[in-house]
Structures are given as structure tokens and as C-alpha cells.
Design a protein around this nucleic acid. Structure first.
Lengths: 139, 139
DNA sequence: TCTTGACTTAAAGTGAACTTGAATTTGCAC
DNA sequence: GTGCAAATTCAAGTTCACTTTAAGTCAAGA
């Protein structure tokens, strides 16, 4: 597969693929002339990268999840830990969603007067912040 | 309250508070000499901002959620829409969490061979990407 | 063979959200 | 009154994840 096919099938622009290669996240299997040739397995790897991004990992963190031979080297404990972390995020987002829904239906003149909205605010301000460089920022 | 107290009580550095003020997200109630004085209500407002950030809104979007008198001006339809959007995020994160948990317990030698992990990958790659400038990026 | 359009690299640019630095001023505890 | 920790402004710097640009290379179809 050439870069345009990978781009087409993955939905990522070629520039991003080159960027990912430069970052060490992906690798081409070789070159035809000067052009990159990719193994079809690249798509699965890109899917894994997309997954990591969605879960809030930085590209550097994702790079650390593969071992030298390029296979995912995420140990099971780490996986569980991430699942737990994700669970906490989900809990807060759920509370938020419920708060939003309630506020939308609430007859209080301003959302600020809605107890449910206030409760949501309280939990939002005490909760750790979601950051770009990880699901949870323990600052 | 002076800026250091707001910083202490909100957990945000003073520099961030000044930055937020510059962006129009918050306002000081006045000055004692040259120093900012904040109304205690600022904490609630910062909580609202924190909430928005957690839900994936950009600062500009959050700024648009207050009307000129500084009260939240989020209309109920918009609120519902955001709740729906959050719901979709939660769905995907839940699937991901389940996939992670399964992979952690799965006896397959590599996670790549785990059908559950593969399923998660498939959904991750087709799903819209979470971005910094909004909960969902419709690219 | 010639053309052309897709590919290449390297470097610079972008935007979001802050942080840091430097120079300056000043509220307030003593 | 005075000393100074803490505030102020403004500009510039940082990180992340890309995107864009410029200039050049080259595989392949007519």
C-alpha cells in the first residue's frame, strides 16, 4: 500500500502519516523508489493509535505502548489501571450529562439556581482535570 | 478576595486567572489600588469553566456560554444537545473501557489476537475523534 | 521519451492554553 | 515611614499535534 491508500483507508491525511512515522509511531515496510510502502497491518496500528488518542493519551505515551518489534506491549496491569481511570472519567461525564439534562428541563430561572446544576459544578471543580497529555492530570 | 485567595481556593495559578480575565472568561469586581479584587462568586464561575473544559469545550466556546451580565446563558436546547453529545462520548469511552478490561483478562498471547480488543479497535478507528476544541470533531 | 501529478524532505507556521520573564509598582505588616 | 513580598503589565516562550509551504524527485501513463 502506498501512502495515499493508507490515507484513504485510515481517513488520516498523508502529512499526518509522515508525522507519525517521524515520531516513531508507525513505520513503512520499505520504499518503492523514494515512496513509502506500508504493510496493510498499518491500519490496525493506526486504529490502535486512534484508540489511544481517544482515551486521552499523548502521542508520546502511545509510542511507549509498543515494544521494539512494533507489537503492542501494554501490560495487563497497565490495561486495568487505564480501564479504572477511564471509568472515573466516565463517572464524571455521566454526572455532567445528567446535570445538563436536568438543567435543560429545570424550571429554575437561571441554571445557577438549579441545585442539580450546582451539584455538578461542585464535582467538576473538585475533580482532577482532563488534560491533553493523559486522561487524568494529577496536578 | 484577592487573586492569591482565588488561586488558592480554585487551585488555579494566578497567571491562569489573569489569562482567563484577558480572555473575557472572568472579571474582577474592582481593584484595590492596582490589585484585582474578586467576588466570591468567581469560584462558582471558575467551577463552571472547569466543567466546560472537562466536557471538552474550548475557552472560546465557554466564553460564549455567558451573556453580557455574566450569567450563564446556555439555552435549554443547547444544553440538551450537549448532553446528547456527551452521551455519545460516554458510549465510546465505555466500549473502550470494556475492551481494555477484557484485554487485561484475555488469555490471548498478544492483545492484537483478542477479538474483543480488535472490536474496540474497529470502533475506535471509525468513530469521530475527540478534540481539544470541542467534544466531537466532525472532520 | 516526455509530461505530469503524486510523492518526497526540511523547515516553518498554526492555534489552543497556558507559563515565564523582566521590569515595575505598591499594599500592608512592622 | 519604610521595606519587601506580592502584585502588576506586556511580551515572549512552551508544548502538543499537526498543517503548510517550498523546492525538488520520480513512477507511470500517453
Amino acid at each position: 500500500m502506498d501512502i495515499s491508500e493508507v490515507a484513504r483507508r485510515s481517513g488520516l491525511p498523508a502529512s499526518t502519516l509522515r508525522f507519525y512515522e517521524e515520531k516513531g509511531l508507525i513505520a513503512s515496510i520499505g520504499r518503492r523508489g523514494v515512496r513509502r510502502i506500508f504493510d496493510p497491518g498499518i491500519l490496525q496500528r493506526l486504529a490502535l493509535i486512534a484508540l489511544g488518542r481517544q482515551a486521552g493519551f499523548s502521542l508520546d505515551e502511545i509510542a511507549g505502548m509498543f515494544d521494539t518489534d512494533g507489537r503492542p506491549a501494554i501490560d495487563r496491569d497497565q490495561l486495568s489501571a487505564k480501564a479504572d481511570e477511564l471509568d472515573r472519567v466516565i463517572q464524571r461525564l455521566s454526572a455532567m450529562r445528567d446535570g445538563l439534562r436536568h438543567a435543560a428541563a429545570c424550571p429554575a430561572p437561571s441554571h445557577m439556581e438549579c441545585p442539580s446544576f450546582q451539584k455538578m459544578l461542585a464535582s467538576a471543580s473538585t475533580a482532577p482535570r482532563i488534560s491533553v497529555q493523559g486522561v487524568l492530570d494529577k496536578t
